[in-house]
Amino acid sequence: MSLVVEHLSKKFGEKVAVEDLSFEITKPGVFAFLGTNGAGKSTSIRMILGMLSRDSGTVTWNGAPLDIMKEQVGYLSEERGLYPKYNIIEQMFYFASIKGMKKKEAAPAIDYLFSRLRIDEYRKMRAEQLSKGNQQKVQLAAALLCNPQIIILDEPLSGLDPVNADLFKSVIREERDSGKYIIMSSHQMETIEEFCEDLVLLHRGKVVMQGNLNDIKRERGRENLTVKADKPFMEIAERCGLTLVEETPNGSSFKVRSEEDAGKMLKEMIDSGINVIKFDLREPSLHELFVEKCGGDVNED
């Protein structure tokens, strides 16, 4: 099974919202769909789901055009909502009914999800009586209600406290492990690194980075160096060709041209009798890659 998105484009008037977006998810897991605010993520997701017409491009699932009326797709949108005045359990049964589930099928699924997400006690309350976090749990339950094969989670962890964020992560992990195809959009790069192997990064509607995260990092090599020592070492760093990025109480961060330059610096520091407290040479983080690709030209909504 695979989800293939090819050459998706959308314009609103003269403004290009998404330009030639293509990616493929060939195996179950969590696929990262990243981008700055206003980069075109939500527009792309809406086009994938068929909510929004495409100017061009195709979306196929198992070789056939994806039809959300036939395929069960779970969607937790960034702009979340429930009917504020209506009873939670009745809303869940409604959501189940529009997904084609009978009441008998829906009841055990709701029971399981409500128990799993620890919101059983709220089932008879109105949505407006629930905290934002609990409303978010109800919405995640709604997204997973029909046991969908494809799940799209747009900022699933935003606004959650650490306990509930961990709960959400455990549910996402559970879905991933049960063979679901999950597309996750988030601005929390640590979470993306925790879950995702493959990604696509959008900026101003265009793909600026794409592929396997480990491969991307490997290609870039270990170029970030953080050093902390008991004596000044800036002269050595300059001599070795390192570029200072920032200085913090935890040490000084540098960009290195190659791992050899870093090794040369370490050797010189030791030879100079400097006591090295910290010497951390690592690949760029996703956060750094994101900022590098999009940071210079952020499009604020």
Binding site: L49, M51, M69, G74, E79, R80, G81, Y83, P84, G100
Partner: peptide, 17 residues
Amino acid sequence: AIEKSSRIIEYLLTSIK
């Protein structure tokens, strides 16, 4: 308007037109 302003419409549109 409630469905639009509460953004629930996005969820509904994953199942019906």
